[in-house]
């Protein structure tokens, strides 16, 4: 339980200091957020947009940066019919300000002290809060054995691909395993199907190794993975999930 009393999460203005294209549909917003009091890897923020006439829209976005980083980074997936995400990916530029509050969510979080082994399972932009965990792990020099199983539609749509390759190349205790569900480049020898129980039995450690699992992605993926992990004998209490529903972000 909480030791401190309720503290209001205040709206604050952050400034966009960089915009980094990650994939054709995804950009990272690097923010300078004065007064930001820190976060834990896996948490999210609420973003609020205000039109000139006062009309407002709010959405939640996962934090991509490690708590140890100076800048707050959000990675936003552009939803074609969305109200907020196309503004964030197409309109917002360096020097613009963005209103946000957080951090929010105290369950889908990982700290290096929580140990592992870790199995991180992502679908699409569900990788964002898991990347915060991977970056946190690297920032504190943790060697908790970690496997990321990451489902993308195509090679081009893998978010953070190069950074993940770099991490894995430097750190033998981190593996990034990809599956491509729609199209794969010539010569691709990785998985090329949706994540299923067989894939998890090959990747997600054994129940005896008692991995801590974090699963984030669209609802069908999270349902499939959660059910499969429990079916394989993993402790449901060690499987944490976060879903991107059909929300019109």
């Amino acid at each position: 339980m909480v030791a401190v009393g309720p503290r209001k999460l205040l709206w604050r203005l952050a400034e966009v200091v960089d915009v980094v294209p990650e994939t054709p549909r995804t950009k990272s917003l690097v923010l300078d957020a004065p007064g930001w009091e820190g976060h834990r890897a896996g948490q999210h923020v609420d973003v609020r947009l205000t039109a000139e006439d006062g009309y407002q829209a709010q959405r939640s976005y996962s934090i991509a940066s490690a708590p140890e980083e100076e800048r707050l980074v959000l990675t936003v997936d552009r939803l074609d019919d969305g109200e907020v995400s196309p503004y964030l990916t197409d309109v917002l530029t360096v020097g613009d300000r963005l209103e946000l509050r957080g951090p929010i969510g105290g369950y889908f979080v990982w700290d290096a002290a929580d140990g592992g082994p870790l199995v991180l399972v992502a679908g699409g932009s569900g990788v964002v809060p898991l990347m915060a965990m991977i970056r946190h792990r690297a920032a504190v020099g943790s060697d908790v054995p970690t496997r990321l199983l990451y489902s993308s539609r195509s090679y081009e749509e893998i978010i953070y691909r190069e950074e993940l390759e770099d991490f894995a190349a430097r750190d033998g205790s981190l593996e990034a395993i990809h599956t491509l569900t729609r199209s794969a480049p010539k010569g691709w020898d990785g998985y090329d199907r949706r994540i299923d129980a067989r894939m998890l039995s090959e990747v997600a450690w054994t129940p005896e190794e008692r991995p801590l699992a974090f699963v984030c992605g669209p609802t069908p993926l999270v349902e499939e993975v959660g059910t499969a992990l429990v079916g394989l004998g993993h402790d449901p209490g060690r499987v944490k999930t976060e879903r991107f529903g059909a929300t019109g972000g």
């Binding site: 609020r48 407002q56 829209a57 709010q58 109200e83 369950y107 889908f108 609802t219 999270v222 349902e223 959660g226 059910t227 992990l229 429990v230 449901p236 209490g237 499987v239 944490k240 999930t241 879903r243 529903g245 059909a246 929300t247 019109g248």
Partner: peptide, 16 residues
């Protein structure tokens, strides 16, 4: 702060 949704998003902390 709410917006209209036609689908039925799912939220939960762990496996169903």
């Amino acid at each position: 702060g709410q917006y209209l949704e036609d689908g039925f998003p799912v939220l939960s902390a762990g496996p169903t």
